[in-house]
């Protein structure tokens, strides 16, 4: 990123650290998972950098964080068996439980 041309002016008035409630929730979830040592800071940065470049540039800052969290949790299989898409055996046909 350093030195790359073409990103235009810095929006110096672009102040709030969080521009939507969900951004703050992504940051909180990241902090909780870091405190739990679910992954390291290096792993998190690496996951952000592994987002394909075209997607990376199209995403906002916290969208990249969200994608990195999804990627790391999937790779480390930390959610295995707990996702809404995989649980609920007999209730799988129930529209409410399947959750779309």
């Amino acid at each position: 990123m350093g030195g790359q041309a073409g990103f235009g002016p810095v929006l110096a008035g672009d102040e709030p650290p969080f521009q939507a409630d969900w951004e703050m929730r992504v940051a909180a979830l990241t902090m909780a998972l870091r405190l739990r040592e679910a992954f390291t800071g290096d792993e998190f940065r690496d996951a952000i950098e592994r987002i394909p470049p075209a997607d990376y540039l199209a995403m906002s800052y916290y969208e990249r964080w969200l994608r990195a969290l999804e990627l790391l949790l999937a790779e480390k299989e930390l959610l295995a068996g707990h996702g809404p898409a995989t649980g609920h055996g007999a209730a799988a046909g129930d529209g409410e439980a399947a959750g779309g």
Partner: peptide, 25 residues
């Protein structure tokens, strides 16, 4: 927490290359 502009591509890319122009903004 850092302001949004600190995390922007524009600030991250240009500050090392043309700091005088960025500071003027």
């Amino acid at each position: 927490p850092s302001p949004s502009w600190y995390k922007s591509f524009a600030y991250r890319s240009r500050t090392v290359r043309e700091p005088r122009a960025v500071l003027a903004e």
